[in-house]
Every structure is written in structure tokens, then in C-alpha cells.
């Protein structure tokens, strides 16, 4: 397929875009890339102080219970919110030079992935500190990351291209993300959900992914392999469909922007 050839020809541009995305985020800030460490660290500290006071959770270690789910969730929201606007933000350059347009969504999702992996280091350090440690199920970690990456890439392809024609999408997405936050087992555990409501979670791909991280990192049990496999296939389909939508819509980007 010639998309791979195009991406290979423009690999230096892809690399500099990702770099600019990561470095540009902290450009002119004093601590620079260190913020990628500090953000999750400070967040963790705030929760560690607040939650034991306001919330009596049945979980032994609520802070870690929360963090292993919240960090992957932040990967999701960063990629989606930035990805939705990426074509519009880069409108100026898009109207002036030709380059494979796919590079824009790909570099957003990839830079979010790199930020996520940096944050994960903090989580891993604290997993060790708090005595939870690692188990053999950690081998699933790269697989779940891959699934989430493909899933996000598919969605961002679709959202970034449609937003050009329908600017409201940026705001609608904000609301959907907020609702989805409560529809995903992040602040609570699936065990506390009445069984007649569980079907809602079966419809939410992020629930499988977040629960997957929690199973392998916090509970240290076998994740729901068949569920994750289902999401993997769904993500691949989403990626292919999303790419085709993007490719069809990108032809008019320069005129619509």
C-alpha cells in the first residue's frame, strides 16, 4: 500500500512533528520535559493526601487503584482532544505545502503515547514503593498499550477530518469525554456496579482497556483476554475505516480551512 511508502519518504517530517509536539508542549517552560514526570507525580500526591480523608474505599490502596486507570485514561483524553483539532490548528501550513496529511493525526497520537509511557515510569516506581510490585501478567502491558494506540489512531483519523467540516465536534467531544469518564471504571471498581447495569460497560471499549491495565498492574490477575481481543479487532476495523474517511475528506482540507 502506498501509504507506507509515503510515510517512509516523509519519515523525517513525521519524526520532527512528533518531537515538536512533545517539546512544543513545554516550550519556554522552565522545567521542560520534566513536566511529563511531574504532572502524574503531583497528581498522585494530591490524591494520596485527599482520598484517605474524604473517601472510605474498600480498596487497600486506593491511590494506586486510581492511578493505574487514570494514567491510561489521560492518554485517551489527550490524544482525542488534541487530535480532534490538529488539522485545523495546522491549517496554515496545510494550505501552503504538500505533505502526507496522515502525519498530523499520527504525530498527535504518537506524542501522546510517548507522554503516557513517561508517566507510566512514575506509576511503576510507585507500584514498587507501595509493595504491590509486578507479576507475570505484566507481559500483557505492551499488548494493551498497542490496542489503545490503534484504537486512538482510528478515532483520531475520523474526528480530525470531520471536525474540519463540522467545528462543533470539538465541543461535543468535550462533553462525551466527560460522560465517558464516569462510564469507565476509573474512580470506582466494576465489582461495585449492580449486575443489571453491567451491559453499559460491555459497550464501552475504554472500559475493557482501562480494566485491562488495572487487572495486570493492580489486581495482578489474568486480564479479560477474549474481551481485549474483541477490542483489538474492533480497533483494527476502526483504523482502516477511519483512514479511509480521513483520506476521502483530506482532499478538500485546503479549501475548507
Amino acid at each position: 500500500m502506498n501509504i507506507f511508502k509515503r510515510l517512509h519518504d516523509y519519515r523525517e517530517f513525521l519524526r520532527t512533528s512528533i518531537k515538536k509536539e512533545i517539546r512544543g508542549k513545554y516550550k519556554k517552560s522552565f522545567l521542560g520535559i520534566l513536566w511529563s514526570f511531574l504532572n502524574p507525580l503531583l497528581m498522585l500526591m494530591v490524591y494520596a493526601i485527599i482520598f484517605p480523608i474524604i473517601l472510605k474505599s474498600p480498596e487497600k490502596n486506593y491511590v494506586m487503584f486510581l492511578m493505574v486507570a487514570l494514567i491510561p485514561w489521560n492518554f485517551f483524553t489527550t490524544a482525542i482532544t488534541q487530535g480532534t483539532g490538529t488539522v485545523i490548528v495546522n491549517g496554515g501550513i496545510l494550505k501552503k505545502v504538500y505533505f502526507p496529511r496522515e502525519i498530523l493525526p499520527i504525530s498527535i497520537v504518537t506524542s501522546a503515547l510517548i507522554n503516557f509511557l513517561i508517566s507510566c515510569i512514575i506509576v511503576f516506581v510507585f507500584l514498587i514503593f507501595t509493595g504491590i510490585g509486578f507479576s507475570i501478567y505484566f507481559v500483557f502491558f505492551p499488548l494493551i498499550v498497542l490496542i489503545e494506540y490503534i484504537f486512538l489512531l482510528g478515532i483520531v483519523f475520523i474526528l480530525s477530518s470531520i471536525t474540519v467540516y463540522l467545528r462543533d465536534l470539538e465541543h461535543i467531544i468535550g462533553v462525551i469525554i466527560m460522560v465517558l469518564f464516569y462510564g469507565t471504571p476509573i474512580v470506582y471498581s466494576l465489582n461495585t456496579i449492580p449486575s443489571n447495569l453491567l451491559w453499559i460497560f460491555k459497550l464501552n471499549p475504554m472500559a475493557y482497556i482501562v480494566q485491562g491495565y488495572r487487572d495486570i498492574l493492580y489486581y495482578q490477575t489474568m486480564p479479560d483476554v477474549s474481551g481485549l481481543f474483541f477490542i483489538f479487532v474492533l480497533s483494527l476495523i476502526l483504523l482502516i475505516v477511519g483512514y479511509h474517511i480521513f483520506n476521502k475528506l483530506q482532499k478538500n482540507f485546503a479549501e475548507e480551512l
Binding site: Y10, E12, F13, K20, F99
Partner: peptide, 12 residues
Amino acid sequence: IYFNASIFGLSK
């Protein structure tokens, strides 16, 4: 130079 030339599809 690096950024602009990469838009034209040049490798590092």
C-alpha cells in the same frame, strides 16, 4: 532548515 526541509520529504 531541518524542519522545513523535512516537509519537502528529505531524510535527516
